[in-house]
Design a protein around this nucleic acid. Structure first.
Length: 709
DNA sequence: GAGCACTGC
């Protein structure tokens, strides 16, 4: 750390008032409700317990459940949204579509669906972008409603359906609702669909809104069918306009004021600035934990190290700083550290990525330190690769981060940028669909019978180039015919719970007779952070050990390595043995447990498509398996050049084997890779050695039209 | 000779 120059934040009071009113300015909406101070904790039910109850075990004590519901009634009644129940219902009722803005703590996600339960003729679906949110909400609402989870109130997420045909209110991830929509385009089970957290603008939410527009105004126009869009931010006009000027309602939340403080000058070194700000804040501010938002793991680890070193030598009058990292790649038991209660003379400092903005809510936060940065993955459809960039956040995101300090008491937010920089930020984060690969969305549209995807009523049109690139990809997979219609194969791909390219590999594998091992590999590929990067001092040793362990992988590449690792994982009978082995090779034990789950699911879906892995060859044949993969990743192939570099077959672009690959440093005539990412240069990840002759065999319809694909 | 934010089926 450089010489301890103090970090100065500008004069606050005026700035605070103006910023606050800035963020409130757009609220020229019909206001219902007034701010109320209540505690609204989220009691978490154990998932295992819920499953047991929902599976019909008759040890349920209904008396106890009803008593608990009565106890919760007073909490419910004090929620902002409850106070305006009748007024709100009277306004919502007559509209086929409405937009409801409810701030954090308003109780909209738990209460409004319950209000509608008695009058809704059929089921109510409430979508959530994340699984845990759907599960927690359903658990809470079942408790409030006084029923067993999975009966009148339930949930449906991947791997877990705790609902039945009679379930009236179902919390569901938007991915699962889309899946239901594919099977039943009318969504005939439901009379109300509530899209929650619409402001997050995930791809799946955007798609749902598009399909719902068609349903509510055309297909189920004369039916009793209602759509409610819930958003936490004020950018509701977009939704309203999209649904033919649907009415907008506003419910106030229960948030404490958060003072915003800015720096007078921009800073260069964010790691240094965050560290100094935390130390300074610790000495001057009363009790309360600190949450810092940073762009990624690298900066977080550096700050954690620095604070850990500084903590023992700081003045003893101030609380002792306890730094805690928080990002998705951390094992879950390490993530749980953020919830740990500390001694009274300690102060928790959480160094987090965007994961703390929406996915994980940490209690006890009074101070937020915001770097104003995040990492964002941007898809370049012209090049068929993705890049990971550090970018400034939006105003909406800055407000969300600041809000994390005001959940339990008034708080402060230290923004490590100037107020003038804040004012220059865009209002909202760019919708995900504009910076993503749209192969899968386009296939879904085709499945739903949309002919002209360029002119479809997209909530946000991804743009001609992006859509055309996706159409080409789908055509090259044989998912679309040359008239752009979905093929029999396309119908199969859309069902499988993996990306279309990987789905194509699965189908191909079943005809080649190697479905079993291919499911293993595809399951491994769909789990993040399965192979963890070893700490620098163990790097060479671990790499060597992995090469030793995976003899075939060292020749054929990473896909075959995954198969070898998964087989070995399964060969240990004892859990502790498995864990030891994972530690040795720096593998993620929980990751492999997830692989097993995904594997089971894929296997079930393949059976549904009448493809059975029992038909697989008994001996593992690496060539056969890689041929299956080439059929899905024909555009991700490159030829080895005399100067040791590789050039992509499709465009001739330079590509290098990523150093994390087992094939790194090896020369092969040709390679195929699952992912192509650009950082300092174009890197191929998950690389396999292939034979060029396979291309002719696997995809004769593509060779010769290469420049078009 | 690198370094991956986050989520979903």
């Amino acid at each position: 750390m450089r010489q301890n120059r103090k970090i100065k934040f500008g004069d606050v009071p005026a700035g605070v008032a103006s910023t606050r009113s800035e963020e409130l300015r757009h609220r020229k909406r019909e206001r219902v409700g007034r701010p109320v101070s209540v505690e609204y904790g989220s009691d978490e039910g154990s998932e295992a317990e819920n499953e047991r109850i929902a599976s019909g075990e008759r040890t349920v004590d209904m008396g106890k459940i009803r008593l608990r519901a009565r106890q919760l009634a007073s909490v419910r009644e004090s929620l902002p949204v409850y106070q305006v129940k009748d007024e709100l219902l009277a306004q919502i009722k007559p509209s086929k579509v409405c937009v409801l803005i409810g701030e954090t703590g308003s109780g909209k996600s738990t209460q409004i669906p319950q209000f509608l339960m008695d009058t809704s003729p059929k089921g109510i679906a409430v979508t959530q972008p994340r699984r845990v949110a759907a599960i927690n909400l359903a658990t809470r609402v079942a408790e409030e409603h006084g029923c067993v989870l999975g009966r009148e109130v339930g949930y449906s997420v991947r791997f877990n359906n705790v609902s039945n045909k009679r379930t009236k209110l179902k919390y569901i991830t938007d991915g699962m609702l889309l899946r239901e929509l594919m099977l039943d385009p009318m969504l005939s089970r439901y009379s109300t669909v509530i899209i929650d957290e619409a402001h997050e603008r995930t791809i799946l939410t955007d798609l749902l809104l598009g399909f719902l527009k068609d349903l509510v105004f055309n297909k189920r126009q004369n039916d009793q069918f209602q759509v409610i869009i819930m958003s936490a931010t004020l950018d509701a006009d977009k939704f309203s306009q999209f649904f033919n000027n649907a009415p907008i309602f506003f419910v106030e939340g229960r948030m404490y004021p958060v003072e915003r403080l800015y720096l007078p000058q921009p800073v260069e070194d964010i790691v240094d600035t965050v560290t100094k700000t935390v130390v300074q804040l610790n000495q001057t501010e009363p009790t309360g934990d600190i949450l810092c938002f940073l762009s990624g793991q690298e900066d977080i680890d550096k700050i954690v190290d620095m604070l850990a070193k500084l903590a023992p030598i700081l003045p003893k009058e101030a609380p002792i700083l306890v730094p805690v990292p928080l990002y998705a790649a951390l094992p879950s038991h390490v993530q749980m550290e953020v919830f740990k209660k500390l001694k009274p003379n300690q102060r928790k400092v959480i160094l987090a990525t965007n994961i703390a903005e929406t996915s994980i809510t940490v209690p006890g936060i009074r101070y937020v330190v915001d770097s104003g940065l995040r990492k964002v993955k941007v898809w370049r459809h012209q090049l068929g690769l993705s890049t990971l960039l550090i970018a400034p956040i939006s105003k909406a995101s800055a407000a969300q981060r600041a809000g994390r300090a005001g959940r339990e008491a008034p708080g402060k937010c230290y923004r490590l940028y100037r107020e003038s920089d804040y004012l220059k930020l865009s209002d909202n984060t760019e919708p995900e669909i504009l910076r993503s690969d749209v192969v899968s969305p386009v296939l879904m549209l085709k499945k739903m019978g949309v002919n002209d995807i360029l002119k479809w009523h997209w909530l946000e049109n991804p743009g001609r180039d992006s859509l055309v690139a996706a159409l080409h990809q789908l055509y090259s997979l044989n998912a679309l015919n040359d008239r752009g219609q979905i093929t029999e194969l396309g119908q199969q791909l859309v069902v499988l719970p993996v990306a279309p390219h990987l789905a194509a590999v699965l189908i191909r594998a079943s005809t080649l007779g190697c479905l079993g091992p291919v499911i293993d590999i595809v399951a491994c590929l769909s789990v993040d952070n399965l192979l963890m990067s070893p700490p620098s001092e163990r790097r060479d040793e671990v790499n060597e050990q992995r090469r030793e362990t995976c003899k075939l992988g060292s020749i054929h590449g990473d896909l075959v390595m995954l198969k070898e690792l998964f087989d070995l994982f399964n060969s240990f009978a004892d859990i502790d043995e498995k864990k030891d082995w994972c530690r040795q090779l720096c593998l993620n034990y929980k990751g492999f447990k997830d692989v097993e789950r995904v594997r089971r699911q894929i296997s079930e879906y393949m059976k549904m498509l009448k493809m059975d892995e029992a038909d697989s060859e008994t001996d593992f044949d690496a060539t056969l398996v890689l041929k299956a993969f080439v059929s899905g990743f024909i555009t991700n192939t490159a030829i080895g050049m005399p100067d040791r570099s590789y050039r992509t077959l499709a465009t001739g672009d330079l590509v290098s084997i990523h150093p994390s690959s087992l094939l790194f440093g090896q020369r092969k005539p040709a390679i195929m890779y699952i992912e192509y990412v650009y950082t300092v240069k174009g890197y191929a990840r998950a690389v396999s050695a292939i034979d060029l002759e396979w291309l002719q065999e696997v995809a004769p319809h593509l060779l010769g039209t290469r420049e078009k694909v």
